[in-house]
């Protein structure tokens, strides 16, 4: 029983992070209607920004996360205006090639710019945990979880309570109608793309205290990210949160009963079962 509760705690912690990195993916799909295969590379970029902010400025990765968000938001905004926008009305194949191409460019660009070595930060809380009775809550996990939840709540607030959020939602529902009522659709889409990749980069920075960064670090998360987004319902922000927490808990609890190598097997069995019953995902828009 103790180990089950412990597994659920751990699962929720990592699940929170899975949620925030997947929100970006789902937001981009929801608003722009394209599946960004390069999404995980922005996570890698966020990790690098946080790493260099730590190495050069002594900034803790949790603070560096805001820097990562800012820089990657600007980059995403620019990318959307210059290249993504051009394929929005193109066939799906072109969109896939563009984002896969972006993935290749970013991964190899990182290899050229930063070299292939594995880099890792050292922080004081990295090897600490809170002990509550028989349970352990890892501090770097808790920090990553809280930061993720805070960013998720902020995004929810922006989407539901601000003019910008309304514009984003309107664009997601019907771009044409949005344009008719005076929304600058192109700008809103660029902002949505920037927010999407920025949040993923933010997620990358907050996991840096317990993981390491290298040019292919993003690829460790690609499958996870898509699983979370599809499980929750691609395009639904709330779905990404539910999906992220579910994936975290499923993988963590499955490790109690099965060897950790079967973690993904268990995850995908559950994944297939859920999609069979709810093809649009847990919170999918019907």
């Amino acid at each position: 029983m103790t180990s089950l509760v412990q597994a659920i705690i751990d699962g929720l912690m990592v699940g929170g992070v899975y949620a925030v990195i997947s929100i970006g993916l789902t937001l981009v799909f929801g608003v722009l209607g394209i599946v960004n295969f390069a999404q995980a590379e922005f996570l890698m970029l966020g990790m690098y920004i946080a790493y260099f902010a730590w190495a050069a400025l002594g900034l803790d990765p949790l603070a560096g996360a805001f820097l990562a968000f800012g820089i990657v938001f600007a980059l995403g905004y620019g990318l959307q205006r210059t290249i993504i926008q051009r394929v929005l009305k193109a066939p799906a194949v072109s969109q896939v090639f563009l984002t896969v191409g972006l993935l290749i460019v970013m991964e190899n660009g990182a290899l050229l710019a930063f070299g292939s070595q594995i880099r890792s930060v050292t922080t004081a809380y990295q090897t600490k945990s809170l002990q509550i009775g028989p349970f352990f809550v890892s501090l770097p996990y808790l920090a990553a979880f809280l930061m993720s939840i805070a960013s998720g709540v902020s995004l929810w607030w922006v989407l539901n309570r601000s003019w910008l959020g309304m514009a984003i939602r309107a664009t997601a529902i019907d771009p044409m109608a949005g344009r008719l009522i005076g929304i600058n659709i192109d700008r809103v889409m660029a902002i949505a793309f920037g927010l999407g990749v920025g949040l993923t980069a933010f997620g990358g920075a907050v996991v840096l205290p317990y993981l390491s960064v290298f040019p292919t670090a993003g690829s460790q998360f690609v499958v996870l990210m898509f699983t979370v987004a599809v499980l929750g319902g691609l395009g639904s922000v709330a779905g990404a949160v539910v999906g992220g927490l579910a994936v975290g808990v499923i993988t963590s609890v499955s490790a109690l009963m099965f060897p950790i190598q079967l973690q993904n097997l268990v995850l995908f069995l559950v994944f297939i079962a859920i999609l069979a019953l709810r093809p649009d995902g847990l919170m999918g828009r019907a």
Partner: peptide, 10 residues
């Protein structure tokens, strides 16, 4: 465990 593991807590 698989080589690309991202969560060793279990």
């Amino acid at each position: 465990y698989p080589q690309g593991i991202t969560d060793v807590t279990p």
